[in-house]
Design a protein around this nucleic acid. Structure first.
Lengths: 412, 412
DNA sequence: TTGAAAGCGCTAACAG
DNA sequence: CTGTTAGCGCTTTCAA
C-alpha cells in the first residue's frame, strides 16, 4: 500500500549507535548484533551529546534492560494452550474468562501456562467474533491546545473505566478530513462516535451514514444546529454574559469584543451574550468596538491594532478566547494602555497561560474534563441501549467565571 | 486481563476501493471520490442556553441534518455483495481491492453495488486474516501540553501517510499505568510501538515482552539507558549548553539552575550541560544556585523563592523547562528584580506561552513534530524489515536556541 | 477471469 | 465440568 518512504530526515548529526564513553561494563558497541545470548545485565551509556566532551560516569544510572534471545516469535494462542494441556479450546477460553463452570484446578493450570507462555488474547479475533469492538471513536478538530486535550482526558478516563478503548481522529479543522475520519471510524467498527465539529464544517450531512446505521453519535462543544442530535456543550452564553457583566460591574462602559467565526455555535453564543449583557445594562452596542477573526495569537495582536486605530475609545475587551486577549494585551500595553486601569480584559477558556501573563487574565473555565466525561457517559448510555430508541439528549454544563487581576479595577 | 487504557489516534485510511457515498450516479472507476450532495431539509433551533431568554431566530443557521428512518441496521458484508451479484466472495474481495485479475465490467458492478449498499469493509476481519493490524501504538506520559501534542501530530502525519493507524496511550506519568498501556497495545495487535517513558518509570523491564516478541520498539525523548534500544532524542545537552553560554555571553556570572528529575535523561543532560558550560567559561559551580523539582508552575514559583532566600546572589536563571522559568519570573518580579537587567532568564521547550509573557522568554526549541516524524519513520523501517535483524539505531535531533527579551541585556 | 475451500483466533450454542 | 461444532468477515492459496 502506501509506500514507506524510509528516508530519514535527520539533522546533521549522524546517528549515534551504541555510543558510549563510559567506563562501566559495556557489552556491545556499534551495531549491536541481535541475539546477544542472554545478556542480562546492567549497562550505562553516555548522553546523546554532540561535540563537547563530558565528565560522564557519575551520571549514568543502572539500566536493567534485559536482552534475552527471542525464544519464539510465535504468539501463543488459545489453541497452543489447549494442545499443551490436553484440553479443548473452549475450556481454555472459558478458563481465561474465569467462567463459573470451570474447575478451579483447571483454571489454575490454564492461568499458569498462560503466564509462562506470556499469552496475550487477540482482541481483534474476540471483537470479530463477538461483534463488538469495544472501541469508541472521537473526532476533534485538533489535539494540541489545552481544551481538547483535557476533554480527551475526561473521555479516556470514563471510557476506559467502562472497558472501552478510544480511537481519536483529528480533522485539522478541515471538513473533508472530518469526513474521512468518519469513514475510518466506521471501518474500524467502533461502537459509538463523539464529534466536535471542525471550523470549516458547514454541512453535516456526512454524519447521516452514522445515523442510518443506528450507530450512537454524540456531539460536544462544537455542534450542529439540530435538536435531533445528542450533544454536550458548555453554556457559552452564560459564561460570556457573566464575564461582560463583571466588566460592567468594574465600571467599564465601552467594552470591545474580539469574536470568533460566527458559524460556530460557541462563538456565536459568546457574541450574543456580549450584546445582550450590554443591552441589559443600558449600554449601547457599537459595531466599531467589535472585531471578528479566528482567535489565533496573531489575530489577537491585529484585533487590538484595528480597535486602537478605529478612534472609538474603549475601556475593556472581552474576547471569545484567551489567546486573542493575551495577544491584544501585548499590543495595548505597547500602546501605553495600563491593564486594567485603562483597559480591563477578560477572555474565555481558562488556558494555563492565563496565569503566566502579567497581570493574570480573567477568564471563563470550560469544564473541559467534565465535558469529556459527560459526553462519553451519554454515548455509553446510547451504546448500551439495544433498542436504539433513546431520544436525543442535550446536556448543558455551567461555566465558571474566574476573576483575575486583568479586570479588577475596584477593590474586590 | 489487561486494563483498557487505549486511545486510538487515527486518521483517514488509505482509500478503500468502492467507498460509499450517495448522490448522483457516480460512474467513475476506482475509489469513489467525495460526492457533491444536494441540500435536503433545513432546520433551526435555539442555542443551548440556560437562564436568559434569547432573541433567537436571527442567530440560527440552516442545518441540513437529514433525519431519515434507519433503513436497515444490517451492515453489508462481502458475502451480501456476492449473493446479490451471483459472484463468489473471493471475486468480490478481489474486485474491491482492485485486483488485476478481475474484469473491469465485474469491478464496476461490484463497486456500484458496494456504493449502493454503503458497504464498509470490516477492518477487524481483514486484520485478523492478514495477521496485520496496520496499527502502531504510542505511549506518552500525557497528552496535554505542547510537546507531546506536537510530537503526536508528527507521528500521525507520517504514519497515516504510510497507511497506518496510531493508537495512543497515556501513562499519566505512572509506571504501572505504562505497563498496562503496553498490554493494551499488545492485545490490540499493534505492529510496532513508540514510547516516551513516564516520570516514574525507573525500571524498564516491562518492555522485555515487546522485545521477546520481536515487535519493533522505538523510544523517543525520554528513553531508557541502554544502547540496545532504538531511540530518537533531542540533543538536550547541546540546547542547554547553548542557552547557558548565551547567558554568559550577556554578561551573567552567577547563573542559577532549576532542574528536573535527574533519573530522566533529558533533565540530566540539561543539568550536565549547565555545569559544563559554566566550567568551560571559568565560572564556579555553586550548589546554592541549583534547585531540583518536577518543573511544574508551582515548582517554579517555589524555586525562585528558595533561591532568593538562600542569600546567594544570582543574575540569571536557566530552567530545564519553560513553565518553571515562567513561574520563577513572577516571583522574581514581585521581589523587585527587573528582567533581564537584574536577572536574565532562559527556559527550555519553546512553549507557546513563552510569547505571551512580558518580556518574552528565551527558550530552546525541541523540534517536536520532527521528533515524531523521525521516530515513526524509524519504527516503520523496523516494521518493514521482515528479518527483524536491524540493529538498534539512535537518532539525535539538533535543538534551536531562540533568544528573546528575557535574556537580552546587551544590544543584539 | 472466476470459484471453492481453508483458515486468522476467538466465542458460544449445544451436547455430553 | 468439558468437548464439539459452527461461525464472525475477510484474504488467499489452489484449481478450474
Amino acid at each position: 500500500m502506501a509506500g514507506r518512504s524510509g528516508l530519514f530526515f535527520v539533522s546533521p548529526l549522524p546517528a549515534v549507535a551504541g555510543r558510549s564513553g563510559k567506563g562501566a561494563g559495556q557489552a556491545g558497541l556499534g551495531p549491536a548484533p541481535l541475539n546477544p545470548q542472554r545478556t542480562v545485565g546492567v549497562c550505562g551509556y553516555g548522553p546523546y551529546l554532540a561535540g563537547r566532551a563530558a565528565p560522564t560516569g557519575r551520571f549514568t544510572r543502572s539500566c536493567p534492560f534485559i536482552v534475552s534471545t527471542p525464544v519464539s516469535t510465535h504468539r501463543a494462542s488459545i489453541s497452543d494452550l489447549a494442545a499443551q494441556l490436553n484440553l479443548s479450546v473452549s475450556t481454555i477460553s472459558r478458563a481465561l474468562s474465569d467462567h463459573s463452570s470451570i474447575s478451579d484446578a483447571t483454571k489454575r493450570r490454564v492461568w499458569e501456562l498462560a503466564r509462562q507462555l506470556n499469552y496475550q488474547p487477540n482482541q481483534l479475533a474476540a471483537a470479530l467474533r463477538k461483534g463488538r469492538s469495544n472501541t469508541l471513536g472521537v473526532i476533534v478538530p485538533h489535539i494540541d491546545g489545552h481544551f481538547f486535550a483535557l476533554v480527551l482526558k475526561g473521555i479516556e478516563n470514563v471510557a476506559n473505566q467502562a472497558g472501552f478503548n478510544v480511537m481519536i481522529c483529528q480533522s485539522n479543522e478541515n471538513a473533508a478530513h472530518e469526513k474521512k475520519n468518519l469513514d475510518t471510524l466506521l471501518n474500524a467498527q467502533v461502537e459509538g462516535i463523539l464529534v466536535s465539529l471542525s471550523l470549516t464544517t458547514k454541512d453535516v450531512r456526512h454524519f447521516e451514514d452514522v445515523r442510518r446505521r443506528d450507530l450512537p453519535l454524540v456531539f460536544f462543544d462544537r455542534i450542529p444546529e439540530s435538536p435531533q442530535v445528542s450533544a454536550v456543550v458548555l453554556d457559552d452564553y452564560q459564561g460570556a454574559y457573566q464575564a461582560v457583566e463583571h466588566l460592567i460591574g468594574q465600571g467599564c462602559r465601552r467594552i470591545a469584543h474580539i469574536g470568533g467565526p460566527q458559524h460556530l455555535n460557541i462563538c456565536r453564543n459568546r457574541y450574543r451574550a456580549y450584546r445582550d449583557a450590554l443591552q441589559a445594562h443600558g449600554l449601547p452596542y457599537d459595531e466599531h468596538l467589535v472585531y471578528f477573526c479566528d482567535l489565533t495569537l496573531p489575530d489577537g495582536l491585529q484585533a487590538a491594532e484595528v480597535l486602537l486605530g478605529r478612534n472609538a475609545p474603549f475601556d475593556a475587551v472581552f474576547a471569545a478566547n484567551d489567546l486573542a486577549v493575551a495577544g491584544a494585551m501585548q499590543v495595548l500595553r505597547a500602546a501605553g494602555r495600563r491593564i486594567p486601569q485603562d483597559v480591563a480584559l477578560a477572555g474565555f477558556s481558562n488556558e494555563l497561560f492565563t496565569l503566566l501573563t502579567e497581570p493574570h487574565l480573567t477568564t471563563v473555565d470550560q469544564r473541559c474534563e467534565e465535558m469529556g466525561r459527560t459526553a462519553v457517559r451519554l454515548l455509553l448510555d446510547m451504546v448500551a441501549d439495544q433498542t436504539r430508541q433513546l431520544p436525543p439528549r442535550q446536556i448543558v454544563l455551567q461555566p465558571e467565571l474566574l476573576v483575575r487581576a486583568s479586570s479588577q479595577r475596584l477593590g474586590e
